[in-house]
Design a protein around this nucleic acid. Structure first.
Length: 656
RNA sequence: GCUGACGUAGCUCAAUUGGCAGAGCACCUGAUUUGUAAUCAGGCGGUUGCGAGUUCGAUUCUCGCCGUCAGCUCCA
């Protein structure tokens, strides 16, 4: 143990009940916990000092609020999972001694550990590692923490080049270097850990995949093993069950089952929308258009441009890899490109006229198709594609309008999500190291964005340094069914484009001024948004979005004509209705309609036919529902109202 | 792009150490006329992703390409 300057001082701990303990600095938390109670020591996973989690074997250096964390405390789970990563590494080292160790942190929902090995792991390897982990857990090996100096650390990891590289980061001599040892395995680690490997009881290894060392694609690829761990068996089981359930709402699966879209190897990353899917797509475009009708100006611009535009915008230098280049037959050069973004073309349209400060903010919106040549490995269902359309907007505004404009755009975006029952995570990304513009400009831009953010009173995550080079931004993220976060909406301030394109307006002083540009998307892309919506609703769309809203089922051929007339009346009322008069049993047709997640199935039997009624089956009411007949006119009116109001609830079938 | 796994009928999946490629659903035909979550019978459907190689013989083994999936990188 290294002698620390503070090791002769005393620290005072304040227990949750207000009692205090004063102990010499350097005392182990386990000793403090033991002094509170032997049984508590058995239950203790770690402790919290001033809100900071540390384990039982790390010497106390500072006093403050002191809390013992047990399995019930949420903070303890990350400690367990971090230790699970070490147990995994312990098992891997036993079975594959040549493996070099990288990093092994706890992550949301689990943990991973990276290894450098000559041969990647197979599923069989994973099973073997998991079995070995169970042995390590049964051995109840204590986690032993040691604090060492750099020289000693280098000696311990002489065979682990990745750890030696990590040690290079320790440049501050005051920084504590610690190692954790469980049985034969020593890791360079700052902790915290559970007291011994026996604490690890319920865990599972989930997958293995390559991961670049330190996330750098120029460095070697390590093999990463993902797993998860819980304190209780039922929690682990519930988690694994959730993963299975999530797969059932995967938009790729539902897209096939509900006949919404397909992808074809002849055009990877581009969507074929079926007739049902196209209805859904168009409904969303129509909806956005309706919401934007008053305050935005929709425009359309070309899809193909000469490289001159991209040189002007900077894309030719920075983004060409991602652009689809087209051969110019006359020049023989690939100097034409499909547009990957709308902004440059919107600037051209803006430049086609002189603008007065009176027209600002001017908001151009479009639904044009964009193409980006994403690397193959990045493609993923509809969430990451090569061809897509954004509900893209470029706002040209005066700098003094930023706060009010951002507020306006945020309300617009959040209101839109809310109408689907979607909740997004807000991220505020500030100035990156490489940027244009002076600090005063960034100060103004960031404070304007921040003011608008805080006006919404919604929590947001600060991503310092993550802004675009041309300005700070607010991103709106949602997660898919398997927990991956996807960016949908965005609000980005841009000070660079107005300079590059020499955008101007005439101010009230009759001189020329530079506007600011805001890039805004709401759905992100319709492709991605639809993917998220499919998963959000699990394919059970609200009436207004359902490609097929009503299916009418005559019980026998005797009701076929009456049913057909009811369908006609529905179609005339603008309802997307179909007649299912196949000679299948009612059971069969009801089952199929349910599988297709049709909001309403109207059964027409003898009784209904005689009284101009329909017996409405409402989706989600479950099997064996006893539908009461509703007058056909009344039902039609209700479906229309439900559609018009874009209600998320299915209420048209309730008793009259 | 990188690492790995995978690719069999429209869909979901089978096919015992390399030996005639199958089932259910869907689709078509016929029967059935059904009161609420899959009625019965028959039929159609395949150069096993594509291309080479090894072999008497390849869905199976090897290589290349294409695509999909997970993760990394990147991003709406």
């Amino acid at each position: 143990m290294i002698d620390r300057p503070d090791s002769h001082a005393e620290v005072t701990l304040v227990l949750p009940d207000g009692a205090t303990r004063t102990v010499p600095a350097g005392t182990l938390p386990s000793d403090v916990v033991r002094s509170i109670g032997e049984r508590l020591l058995l239950a203790a996973v770690a402790v919290s000092v001033n809100g900071e989690v540390q384990d039982l074997m790390t010497p106390l250096r500072r006093g403050g609020a002191f809390r013992v964390l047990t399995e019930k405390d949420p903070e303890a789970l990350a400690v367990l999972r971090h230790s699970a990563a070490h147990v995994l590494a312990t098992a891997v080292r036993r079975l594959r001694p040549e493996a070099k160790i990288g990093f092994g942190p706890a992550i949301e929902d689990g943990f991973y550990y990276d290894f450098e090995v000559a041969h990647p792991f197979t599923p069989d390897d994973l099973a073997a590692f998991e079995a070995e982990m169970r042995k390590v857990a049964q051995e109840k090996l204590p986690f032993v923490r040691e604090e060492v100096d750099t020289a000693e650390a280098r000696r311990r990891f002489v065979d682990d080049p990745l750890k030696l590289e990590r040690l290079d980061d320790f440049t501050d001599p005051a920084e504590i270097i610690s190692t954790y040892t469980d049985g034969p395995f020593v890791d360079l680690c700052r902790g915290p850990h559970v007291p011994d490997t026996g604490r690890l009881k319920h865990f599972k290894l989930l997958s293995a995949a390559g991961a670049y060392w330190r996330g750098d694609e120029k460095r070697q690829m390590l093999q990463r093993i993902y797993g998860t761990a819980f304190f209780k068996k039922d929690e682990l089981d519930a988690h694994l069950f959730r993963l299975e359930e999530a797969k059932k709402r995967d938009h790729r699966r539902l897209g096939k089952e509900l006949d919404l879209f397909m992808l074809h190897p002849f055009s990877p990353g581009a969507t074929f929308w079926t007739e049902r899917g196209t209805i859904l797509y168009n409904l969303l475009v129509e909806y956005v258009r309706e919401r934007q009708q008053r305050d935005f100006a929709e425009i359309k611009t070309p899809l193909l441009y000469n490289k001159g535009l991209w040189e002007l915008s900077g894309h030719w230098g920075k983004y060409r890899e991602n652009m689809f280049l087209v051969l110019d037959a006359e020049s023989g050069e690939h100097d034409i490109s499909l547009k990957p973004m709308n902004c440059p073309s919107h600037y051209l349209l803006y430049l086609s006229k002189k603008h007065s400060y009176r027209e600002l903010p001017k908001r151009f919106v479009t639904f044009d198709v964009l193409h980006r040549n994403e690397v193959t490995g990045a493609l993923s269902g509809l969430t990451r594609v090569r061809q897509f359309a954004q509900d893209d907007c470029h706002v040209f505004l005066r700098e003094d309008q930023i706060t009010s404009e951002v507020k306006f755009l945020m309300d617009f975006i959040l209101g839109y999500y809310e109408s689907f029952g979607l909740t997004a995570t807000l991220k505020f990304a500030t100035r990156p190291p490489e940027r244009v513009g002076d600090d005063a400009m960034w100060d103004r831009a960031e404070s304007a964005l921040k003011a608008a953010l805080e006006a919404t009173a919604k929590p947001y995550q600060l991503k310092a340094g993550d802004g675009a080079f041309y300005g700070p931004k607010i991103d709106f993220d949602v997660t898919d069914s398997i927990g991956r976060a996807w960016q949908l909406g965005t609000i980005q301030l841009d000070y660079a484009a107005p300079e590059r394109f020499d955008l101007t307006y005439t101010g009230d002083d009759n001189t020329t001024h530079r506007p600011v540009v805001i890039h805004r998307a709401v759905s992100g892309s319709f492709e991605r948004f639809i993917a998220i919506l499919i998963e959000h609703f699990a394919g059970a769309f609200p009436t207004w979005l359902a490609p097929e809203q009503v299916r009418v089922l005559p019980i026998t051929d005797d009701q076929r004509d009456v049913a057909a007339k009811i369908v006609e009346r529905m179609l005339a009322a603008g309802i997307r209705a179909h007649l299912d008069d196949r000679s299948e049993t009612l059971k069969y047709r009801v089952a199929e309609g349910a599988r297709m997640k049709i909001p309403y199935m109207c059964v027409v039997g003898k009784r209904e036919a005689e009284s101009d009624q329909v017996a409405v089956n409402t989706r989600g009411a479950g099997e064996g529902q006893k539908p009461a007949p509703v007058p056909a006119d009344r039902f039609i009116e209700r479906v229309r109202d439900e559609t018009r109001s874009r209600s998320l609830l299915l209420e048209a079938g309730r008793a009259p």
